[in-house]
Design a protein around this nucleic acid. Sequence first.
DNA 1: ACCCATTTTTACAGCGCTGTAAGTTCACCG
DNA 2: CGGTGAACTTACAGCGCTGTAAAAATGGGT
Lengths: 336, 336
Amino acid sequence: MANIRLSDVAKLAGVSPKTVSNVVHGYAHVRDTTRARVQQAIDELGYRPDVRGRSLATGRTMMLALAFPDLRIPYFAELAHVIAEAAGERGYRLLLEESGGAREVERAILSADEAGIVDGVLFQPVWLTSTEIAQHRGDIPVVLLGENTAPLTVDHVHIDNIAAAVQVVEHLAALGRRRIAYVCAEHPRPSETSRLRLIGYQQGLEACGLPVDPSLIVSGTVGNADAARDALGAALDAGMAPDALVCRDDLAAMGALRALAERGLRVPEDVAVTGWDDITLATAVRPSLTSIRADGRELARRALDLLLERIDGFDGLGRHEVVGHSLVVRESAPGV
Amino acid sequence: MANIRLSDVAKLAGVSPKTVSNVVHGYAHVRDTTRARVQQAIDELGYRPDVRGRSLATGRTMMLALAFPDLRIPYFAELAHVIAEAAGERGYRLLLEESGGAREVERAILSADEAGIVDGVLFQPVWLTSTEIAQHRGDIPVVLLGENTAPLTVDHVHIDNIAAAVQVVEHLAALGRRRIAYVCAEHPRPSETSRLRLIGYQQGLEACGLPVDPSLIVSGTVGNADAARDALGAALDAGMAPDALVCRDDLAAMGALRALAERGLRVPEDVAVTGWDDITLATAVRPSLTSIRADGRELARRALDLLLERIDGFDGLGRHEVVGHSLVVRESAPGV
DNA sequence: ACCCATTTTTACAGCGCTGTAAGTTCACCG
DNA sequence: CGGTGAACTTACAGCGCTGTAAAAATGGGT
């Protein structure tokens, strides 16, 4: 089946190609009779516009990229879902790019060596520093997501990690917990996200008048429940005796739940546990997870707004926006 | 920064545009001195090929779509990851499309009203019947994924659901379980996937000489652990007393674990539980899940091979391929 | 019937690239 | 030193569509 082109429709309808284009786009100034004739030709031939020609002519692809570490991490999958939905409402498709958490790949994403694929990029870096980000070629609009410090020249949407971490610690302290551990700081160098959460963790302890004890910080691989279980398990076996855990994310929390259960420690009676991200499964595990929940819909909305403004030509300094978060209290660290 | 075009590079290097194109593509018959000169011009100008022009000229976009119900379901996220990886190895990007499990959207995916976005589609339908699929416009190559019966004219890659379900039941029977329930059949009409798994479940029971008891079939929403927990919980409260559960997928299994635990039933001592999909978190919950694992890498490989053959013009009858699966035995339904 | 202001339609050129086929240059042989 | 095939390079046309600006048609007065 040879592909039907705009001009084929035009020929059949006896109008110029541009008029067909106008009909396809619902342009107002087309006589009803003309529109009907063109529409009939479209239907008759089964014409479907080819976006490549269009995008070459308009300079827009109506596609955005969302770049983040790994689709298999529930938080990112859920984020992608929300953003794809919001992008769709604005007429854009979403292309997902996984960096695998590798600095190389993150760099490649910013300096893409092919143009014309997407109109803009939403990018959640893990390792790239703001200096590196600031040096990106700038051929294409970028909005940063997540917790990294962003350069002044680039838009950025995030939650207040420090405040959230403080809130978590205060919640645990209000439950009477005194030996509050932090589970899964990357080793040897924490990602920016972890760094901020650790700062908040420490601030929270200080605010509650609790000592900051480095031996209560468990290092481990991020984004992997089993790794968290092993890391925490080893720490517990080595004698660490926390009465609460601030976990870097829900996956770590799930691993922690296992490690605790395997040692006969009850949650929350013996050890209260909090997660981060409030993934869907947070309600399915037992006990269900108390967790920090970012306002994902708002995050998607703001990020897309900023990006679309850039695509429309806005060229000012970077905007840095904070979206809301909340502590969702569940069984693993219940309310007082 | 005005965009640099191929012709700009050609001008600077003093060659024809086509020669620049040849250099970009690593075409063999370019004199070294020419290549060097062109390369220098490319670097100097920071030229990056525009894929839109290329794809208009070649007729290829080097993008594939993967359409499935919902990114937030871990199995699909993990599937998307594997397929994206395999597609990348073949030089293709992957565009994800979520159907939301809606028949309407599934139909729209097949009869996309815009052309030229992707070169082919991998499609995991939930509700579309093979008749409907067979009637799709055929403008674009499609390979079906997953468990639906596919029309004879369309390629299809799947695992043997019936055999896998039989295997699960036999495993449970070998543990001495006699009252093996099935958790989460969609109500009122099961999806094709559920139907096949139910058939296998029944066959397995018969093969083991166990009675098929309809009251051991729990209906419920699919893809949602909490719904599974509620559905199973209600059934248990109503007096159902299984000693094993075949769960439709790992999410259902996780919900089931909760429902059982809340009622003081021990897994696997009182009730053995199996899942399906072997998602990453299957090892993180407690007890870890015995689950059916499809060979995802092989699935991705085969599906892409078939699709790329279609894109290359293959026009024969549909190929139907079965990829391997295995029963991964863990704590929730241990080996004998 | 004619003029003017709209409304509707069109011609044109070009977005950036590559396949084809037809040059042109080169190295080497007789 | 011409001839020859291989190695290299290019002209051309067109992939399918849309922005622009200008032309054509229409309608409403006078």
